[in-house]
Design a protein around this nucleic acid. Sequence first.
RNA 1: GGAUCUUUGGCAGAGUUGGUCGAAUGCACCGGUCUUGAAAACCGGCGAGGGUUAUACCUCCCAGAGUUCGAAUCUCUGAGGGUCCA
Length: 416
Amino acid sequence: MIDLKLLQKDFDVMSAKLMRKGVDSTLIKNLKTKSEELKAAKAAYETLQADQNAMSKEFGQLMREKKDVTELKAKVDVNKINITEALELQRVAQEALESIAMSIPNTPDDDVPDGADENDNIEIKKVLTPREFSFAPKEHWELAEQNGWIDFERGVKLATSRFSVSFGMGAKLERALINFMLNFNAKRGFEEVSVPALVNRTALEGTGQLPKFEDDLYKIDGQELFLIPTAEVPVTNLYQDEILSADALPKKMTAYTSCFRKEAGAAGRDTRGMIRQHQFHKVELVALSKPDESDKIFEEMVACASDLLTALELPHRLVTLCTGDLGFGAAKTIDLEVWLPGQATYREISSVSNTRDFQARRAKIRFKDGKENTLVHTLNGSSLAVGRTLVAIMENNQQEDGSITIPEVLKPYLGM
RNA sequence: GGAUCUUUGGCAGAGUUGGUCGAAUGCACCGGUCUUGAAAACCGGCGAGGGUUAUACCUCCCAGAGUUCGAAUCUCUGAGGGUCCA
């Protein structure tokens, strides 16, 4: 949720920022109008309510003195009707405002490059040089099948398309990667947490998946529960509607969960292999920080994910997302893209975002800033998507005969 | 599944013959006095959101609906927790 007070105060600045992210200017104008209308409706209601309270007090006084109240009661009855009307007006204004406000994305940071889509993202740097192959490298699904690591057909049999099953070393590697990542993150000061894979509507509204992206979520029939699309949701909402003490910050957490996405808009994309699955494993980084620390934490999180890839000997690059590619809640995002020799391209494997106070405002996560209660900044980043990491290991570490070498750092986790 | 009780501020815990209650008290916390310093003691402050230059004022005592001039207090529904029965 954007800061509506700020919108009223610095309308031109705010709307310029929102327009960089492609928000329609009339919508922004409308938001401001609605916000002012609500304020007026509230003021009107509160005045009437104050009268009502005063008269009720007087009423009690008269009763105690055993005086006549019929005249006062008549006055109060009239006022009551007005209150009902005023309250209804306020409710309507409130609803109108919320339906717009909840669908407005976060404002991008000033240093985020302008752009329409992923083609306008800007590369920051490359890490590690892709290896030279003396043969034509295969794509991961071929390797996965040849080694018997991943079975795509049986995943479809059990569920539907975009589900897969891992066997043997494939399954072990997943487990090894999860443990390796969690331990790696712990050394960087991220506390491990284990959270529910189902969350309620409030949690999803807190982090911004709802109300706008309900179609992308799996919902449990008959209950207001959803399968999490990312651990960001339960972990960030851990402190929803709380006021933290200043010395509890920054809160740095890491969690492993399965993630579930309908991939509603992704028909025809990455249909082969395990780049885009309905269910996948992910280790996530989440941080809550004071506003003036969030840039620093952001860098730490990017470094953490990048160093993880380096430790796994995987060539990758860092990319700043342009305004057009930026997610709904993000003020700034850096993607990490891993080199896939089979496709001869870099593919997203991690995404680190600073949402500033956008999520915190929705989720009401504050901290005691001296005497004031101030919204925290929330940050999240994958570290990493496990399936895609496995894909990267297969493609980068393949030998001519199709066998795959295991990264040194993982061997202890495999009993090797 | 049936019966019954319960749900208050960071925690504990008053307040339920409806009348001003955002709510006693204790602990915790913050500031001060005292002390070389700390502890103790004493003094003061101390829920949240909105609103205001600042007051005023409005809202919130699990959630929602209702009764009433007025509800933390009464009624109904739902959710969480406890106890008993099956």
